[in-house]
């Protein structure tokens, strides 16, 4: 699968209701150790309710400067959430369908 086919797709729940668009895909370097780096495993997709475009990840990184830009971009991406791979039921060319009873997680990259 090519990642850009996934980015920007609609995200729908099991009833077909639209939740937003895929704005990013999150990977974890915790797969099988390779010669140089571990495999990058798909953790889940970041869903943004308004726009698939993401600018510098303000909504995910806790960056607060410059203040007006940070406020604007946080407001623009409000309501973004992470859906784990386990909750994805199907990936069609135009939409990603989630399983019934899926869980939504906070989108921040901070630990």
């Amino acid at each position: 699968m090519i990642l850009n086919d996934l980015l920007g797709s609609d995200v729908r729940d099991s009833d077909g209701g639209r939740l937003g668009e895929v704005s990013d895909a999150r990977f974890a370097l915790d797969g099988t150790p390779g010669q140089l780096l571990s495999d990058a495993r798909l953790v889940g997709i970041v869903v943004s309710p308004r726009t698939a475009a993401s600018f510098l990840g303000y909504e995910r990184l806790g960056i607060t400067q410059p203040w007006p830009v940070a406020q604007l971009l946080r407001w623009w991406h409000r309501g973004s959430f992470l859906v784990l791979w386990e909750d994805i039921a199907r990936m069609d060319p135009d939409a990603v369908y989630l399983r019934p009873g899926y869980a939504a997680y906070e989108v921040g990259l901070q630990r």
Binding site: G20, A25, R26, A40, V43, F81, Y105
Partner: peptide, 27 residues
């Protein structure tokens, strides 16, 4: 009409480093 997701939870911990494709890899 856009549907609302369920209340947000804390994401599960993962052992390795997290990479968001658009933020850390593409371009």
């Amino acid at each position: 009409m856009r549907k609302q997701p369920p209340p947000l939870r804390k994401p599960p911990e993962v052992a390795g480093r997290l990479l968001d494709a658009q933020l850390h890899l593409l371009d």
